[in-house]
Computed example of a mutant assay.
Amino acid sequence: MTKIVEKMTQAGLGQLADGTLVERVLPGEEIEVLADGSARVITPVVDRVKAPCRHFKSCGGCAVQHASDRFVEGWKTQIVERAVTARDLPFPLRHVHTSPPKSRRRARLSGRRTKKGAMVGFHAKASDALIDVPDCQLLLPGIRAGFPALEALTVIAASRKSEVNLTVTDTLNGLDVHVATEKTLDGPLRIELAGLAEAHDLARLAWNDDVVVTRKSPDQQFGPARVAPPAASFLQATREGEQALVNAVLGSLGKARKVVDLFSGAGTFSLPIAAKCEVHAIEGDAEMLSALDRGWRHATGLKTVTTEVRDLFRRPLEPDELNRFDLAVLDPPRAGAQAQVATVAASDLKSVIMVSCNPVTFARDASALVSAGFAMVWIDVVDQFRWSPHVEVVASFTRT
């Protein structure tokens, strides 16, 4: 018995009329659901394409490579639109930006020892099975070229029964690798790892909470400044996506002279903004702020940047503190910035730019701003996690 796919869920699954969820199908397709829960497509739609990666059916890293770019862009835009309009907010869409294939500069991979050495890759969806991904269409070629180093690290770090997590980041000076493992770092191991980093020309190698060696500064370019963020710390997934977000923020500064950057991280927005405005950067991670400060001090042509270590979830900036600034930039984690947005709403601030990796918490926080008299001027959708259900948002708010 054949069935029609009714819609695509936010997780990238096709949904049938009875609620059944099926992988790798598209709305409007006539399918037959097989005994193992997979689908045989009887009548494909025009947006079905051949997956660009040969690992798509086995690897859990991507969800919608079977759909055209046009479809994926529309689907992700609709995810944001549904979240926003569910709060009775307008949806003033301005731009949609999608990062190109082979542009992911940061990835969290898994490593497992094998009889012949080691395997590094992504897990199959909802499975412990590890999939080798030699032709991955997400990662920068520089990261793929670093797999021999990751495999060598796996042989050292993993037992026969355990996996290791490998966070690898492409920097201006080579790969920055962080190994999360149960194996304890001692003197002989430190020497062995330093030799491995030398042999594979790694910029930096960290083992759990310890930096084993920094051969070259693992720099990222934030505006006019070079910054070496802490090992395995947050970083926008692609340079193209980051630039789209930065351009959106810079384009909305207007006549602002003093800007507060809330949840600033290591300076993704603070340092580009500092080319035009004074910036006060606030972040809960002291190491990230130290990296930001060093980057600012070594750059030229930037206005004053001050930093403050502060947990904005437990102790948000109060209205009288916010009133010292012309504009606030907020880029919170997935949980959003509910407490901080409440004090922004109670302040005299006239302009807010909000960046979010979660459309649902973004819509909640945007609703609080609109209730306080702000208008959403525009909203951009930024897709850094190509072929996945993840999507980011940046929007400008002006108090009317």
Rank of each mutant, 00 (worst) to 15 (best):
L245G: 06
G28D: 13
T307K: 11
A275T: 12
R257S: 14
D210M: 12
A375N: 08
T2H: 14
P141L: 02
N358K: 02
R108V: 11
N323H: 05
W387C: 04
G187H: 14
P134G: 08
P272H: 10
A126T: 06
I79N: 00
T238Y: 11
K3H: 14
L140K: 04
G28S: 11
G195A: 10
L189G: 11
R105N: 05
H390W: 11
I4T: 15
W75M: 07
C53L: 01
V120M: 06
V84A: 00
I273T: 11
T85R: 14
T307D: 07
E23M: 11
N358M: 02
T361P: 00
L302T: 12
T214M: 14
T77G: 12
P272I: 01
K350N: 02
G295E: 01
R314I: 00
A86S: 15
D88C: 02
D170R: 02
W207K: 04
M119F: 01
Q243E: 15
H55F: 07
G265V: 11
T398I: 05
R48G: 12
F269P: 11
V49C: 09
G28L: 13
N173M: 05
V246R: 08
K161W: 07
V211N: 10
D18T: 11
R82D: 14
F71Q: 10
G373I: 03
A51N: 10
S388T: 15
D176Q: 10
V84L: 02
R314E: 13
D326Y: 04
L189C: 14
L21Y: 13
R54W: 06
V246Y: 07
K7F: 00
E198K: 05
W387E: 10
W207P: 04
C357K: 09
D326K: 03
T114L: 12
G295N: 07
E198G: 00
E32G: 14
R108Q: 14
P389T: 06
D331P: 03
V155R: 00
A158K: 04
A366V: 04
F263C: 09
S162E: 08
P27D: 10
T181D: 02
C59Q: 08
G295P: 03
P389N: 09
T2S: 15
G142W: 03
G60K: 08
K125V: 00
W75S: 06
P101L: 10
A363C: 08
T171M: 03
R297A: 12
T181R: 03
K161H: 13
A299R: 09
V41E: 12
A266P: 10
A335T: 01
L327F: 00
S99K: 11
G28F: 15
F269H: 09
Q15Y: 08
P359R: 07
T238S: 11
H298S: 13
G12K: 09
V360Q: 15
S68W: 12
A17D: 07
Q221L: 13
D132Y: 04
Q220D: 05
P332D: 08
E32M: 15
L196E: 02
H55K: 01
T361S: 05
G37D: 15
I31K: 14
M288A: 15
P90H: 07
A180H: 14
L139V: 01
V96S: 08
I143T: 01
N173Y: 03
A118C: 10
R215C: 02
N165F: 05
Q220E: 14
F269V: 13
P272F: 07
S388F: 10
L245I: 12
T77F: 01
F362H: 03
A225H: 08
A237F: 09
P188A: 13
L289G: 12
S99F: 06
